[in-house]
């Protein structure tokens, strides 16, 4: 079973590898303008708090309690990204996992409804450590639409657009380890390589060591366009241990209801993209390993963005949706030695 540790969901598979773990935190971020422009990566602005659903049974609707998992406070039109941490059993030895992510039980990679297990053609999951984060719905090859929270039932969420229902909202995550025999083979190969390196080092002594009331439920809608590759799976589909999967339901609550539910104050709204850019702060571009990207989903590419729907429903322009200058993005990655910067403090959050 996953655990909740310091606002991270932590997945361990000790039956396969005692010393490895995979964890996810949910990063606050600024909402990128929802226009035709495709943006670079915005920063992280600190983790959203996560709390056990079962700690607040009297304050949550019965369906939320029945789903279990955790709750997370988010403001209307606030954006988020999923930050993946892969802590392998040793330096340079990652413990690969497959991650299935859905919003309102709509797969964020394919746009299909939630299905157990993993599938190819199209690939309906991400693989860590290849995929360091996920910012939104995969709409085209190399482009996502940012995850933006909107009240469930208002018609904005991807779930409502694709199914016509506002039943689930939130995020659903399932994590799969490799089968034990596949993992052991990978581990053995790594250990042999380490041994060869050590022998080479002992021969030359020069080679450097590589370092490395009831709260309002929210659903995720499609925000602005952002450059982000969904990496293809470098393993075979049968390498994954489907039976060892763990899963969590993350209920998104409107941040205005957070104090009434948990007794804790919610954090202020994050800065706008304009405030961030006006402050001269950087945007980012990820250069991953040389690997193929999977295509975006045609279903998801047909989804209307928040700004479009807002205009359609109200006749007005969604606030803070004007394009901004981002300057030359800072290059990141690949590898765990180049994490995406997180600014947890800022003048906007006092």
């Amino acid at each position: 079973m996953p655990t909740l540790e310091n606002d991270r969901l932590v997945f361990r598979f000790p039956q396969i590898e005692e010393d490895a773990r995979f964890s996810i935190d949910f990063q606050r971020t600024l909402r990128i303008p929802d226009s035709d422009k495709t943006y670079s990566l915005p920063p992280g602005l600190g983790s959203f708090p996560l709390r056990h659903v079962e700690d607040h049974p009297q304050k949550l609707p019965a369906p939320t309690t029945a789903r279990g998992g955790v709750i997370l406070p988010i403001w209307q039109a606030e954006a988020m990204w999923l930050n993946f941490h892969n802590d392998g059993p040793d330096w340079g030895l990652d413990f690969p996992v497959a991650i299935k992510v859905a919003a309102g039980k709509i797969n964020a990679v394919t746009g299909e409804g939630w299905r157990a297990g993993l599938h190819r053609d199209p690939q309906d999951y991400l693989v860590s450590p290849e995929q360091p984060w996920l910012d939104g719905f995969a709409i085209e090859k190399g482009v996502i639409r940012q995850f933006v929270a909107m009240p469930l039932g208002d018609g904005y969420s991807v779930e409502e657009q694709l199914t016509g229902d506002a039943e689930w909202g939130g995020l659903q995550i399932s994590v799969f380890p490799l089968k034990a025999e596949v993992w052991q083979a990978k581990r053995r190969a790594w250990e042999e390589e380490q041994k060869r390196r050590a022998e080479r080092r002992s021969m030359f002594m020069e080679e450097p060591i590589a370092c490395y009331s009831m709260p309002a439920p929210m659903g995720l809608a499609a925000g602005g366009r952002m450059r982000q590759i969904i990496h293809s799976d470098p393993f075979n589909i049968d390498d994954w241990d489907i039976n060892a999967a763990d899963r969590v339901f993350i209920t998104l609550l409107h941040a205005k209801d957070w104090k009434g539910t948990t007794g804790e104050a919610a954090r202020n709204q994050p800065p706008t993209a304009k405030e961030y850019s006006d402050a001269g702060l950087p945007w980012f571009e990820y250069y991953g390993k040389d690997q193929t990207a999977i295509s975006g989903s045609t279903k998801l590419s047909g989804v209307k963005s928040v700004a479009n729907l807002f205009k359609q429903m109200t006749g007005a322009t969604l606030p803070n949706s004007q394009d901004v200058e981002t300057g030359k993005p800072v290059r990141l990655g690949p590898g765990p030695n180049a994490p995406r910067p997180v600014r947890s403090e800022g003048s906007w959050d006092r």
């Binding site: 655990t3 909740l4 056990h52 789903r67 279990g68 998992g69 969590v248």
Partner: peptide, 12 residues
């Protein structure tokens, strides 16, 4: 308590 407790799965 937050450290030691598993995240409970439910019906969804």
């Amino acid at each position: 308590l937050r450290i030691v407790r598993d995240v409970r799965d439910g019906n969804w």
